[in-house]
Computed example of a mutant assay.
Amino acid sequence: MIFNREFEFTLPRGFIDSQGKVHRKGLMRLATAADEVVPMRDFRAQQNPAYLPVLVLARVIVRLGELPEINAGVIENLFTADMAFLQDMYRRINEMAGEPVVNGVCPQCGCHHRIPLDFNDLKTFS
């Protein structure tokens, strides 16, 4: 069975670097057990369990725009809308067997459909 291990995304707002450049397009990979266990040893997560998602996302986001490195500092400086988007994406791609999909029903004929999720198909906030 071949399945996708990396998923492209486009952030709703984007990360703004020190030069003012906005980075919105990225790539997230499926998490491993180590991605969830190793950050638990970090003193920041031990002192504040709410910091754990920052560390996990820093491990599984492979690319964000043209940034040379993704680390906890990058994730810390995301807008809350982007953080919520990435946490939801993480949950969806890691908790579903196979490709991430949503179940839908056609309002006209009542047929049930499995619709693949596209994490790039977002409207930009103004």
Score class of each variant (00 low, 15 high):
Met1Tyr: 10
Ile2Thr: 11
Phe3Ala: 06
Asn4Tyr: 02
Arg5Tyr: 12
Arg5Val: 07
Arg5Gly: 01
Glu6Arg: 13
Glu6Ile: 03
Glu8Trp: 01
Phe9Arg: 03
Thr10Trp: 01
Thr10Asn: 02
Pro12Asn: 08
Pro12Gln: 09
Pro12Ser: 09
Phe15Tyr: 15
Phe15Ile: 02
Phe15Glu: 05
Gln19Asp: 14
Lys21Ile: 15
Lys21Met: 11
Val22Phe: 00
His23Ile: 09
Arg24Ser: 12
Lys25Met: 09
Gly26His: 07
Gly26Cys: 05
Leu27Thr: 12
Met28His: 06
Leu30Phe: 02
Ala31Lys: 04
Thr32Pro: 02
Ala33Asn: 09
Ala34Phe: 09
Glu36Trp: 11
Glu36Gln: 12
Val37Ile: 15
Asp42Ser: 10
Asp42Gly: 00
Phe43Ser: 11
Arg44Gly: 00
Arg44Tyr: 06
Ala45His: 02
Ala45Ile: 10
Gln46Tyr: 02
Gln47Arg: 12
Asn48Ser: 10
Pro49Cys: 04
Pro49Val: 03
Tyr51Asp: 05
Leu52Tyr: 12
Pro53Gly: 05
Leu57Cys: 07
Ala58Val: 04
Val60Thr: 14
Val60Gln: 09
Ile61Ser: 05
Ile61Cys: 04
Val62Leu: 11
Val62Glu: 15
Val62Ala: 00
Val62Ile: 14
Arg63His: 06
Leu64Pro: 04
Leu64Gln: 02
Glu66Thr: 13
Glu66Phe: 06
Glu66Asn: 13
Leu67Tyr: 06
Leu67Val: 07
Pro68Ser: 09
Glu69Ala: 08
Glu69Gln: 12
Glu69Leu: 12
Ala72Gln: 14
Gly73Pro: 01
Gly73Trp: 03
Val74Gln: 03
Val74Asn: 01
Val74Ser: 02
Val74Met: 03
Ile75Cys: 02
Glu76Met: 11
Asn77Gly: 06
Leu78His: 04
Phe79Ala: 14
Phe79Ser: 13
Thr80Lys: 10
Ala81Trp: 00
Asp82Phe: 03
Asp82Tyr: 04
Met83Pro: 00
Met83Ile: 01
Ala84Met: 09
Phe85Ile: 08
Phe85Asp: 06
Phe85Gly: 01
Leu86Val: 05
Leu86Ala: 06
Leu86Lys: 08
Gln87Gly: 07
Asp88Ala: 13
Met89Leu: 15
Tyr90His: 12
Arg91Thr: 08
Ile93Leu: 12
Met96Gln: 15
Ala97Ile: 10
Ala97Asp: 13
Ala97Gly: 02
Gly98Ile: 05
Gly98Trp: 10
Gly98Glu: 07
Pro100Leu: 12
Pro100Thr: 09
Val101Asp: 00
Val101Ala: 03
Val101Arg: 13
Val102Ala: 12
Asn103Met: 11
Asn103Glu: 15
Gly104Glu: 14
Val105Arg: 15
Cys106Leu: 03
Cys106Gln: 04
Pro107Leu: 07
Pro107Ser: 10
Pro107Val: 11
Gln108Met: 07
Cys109Phe: 09
Gly110Val: 11
Ile115Leu: 15
Pro116Cys: 05
Asp118Ala: 05
Asp118Pro: 05
Asp118Arg: 07
Phe119Pro: 03
Asp121Glu: 14
Leu122Arg: 13
Phe125Asn: 07
Phe125Arg: 08
Ser126Pro: 14
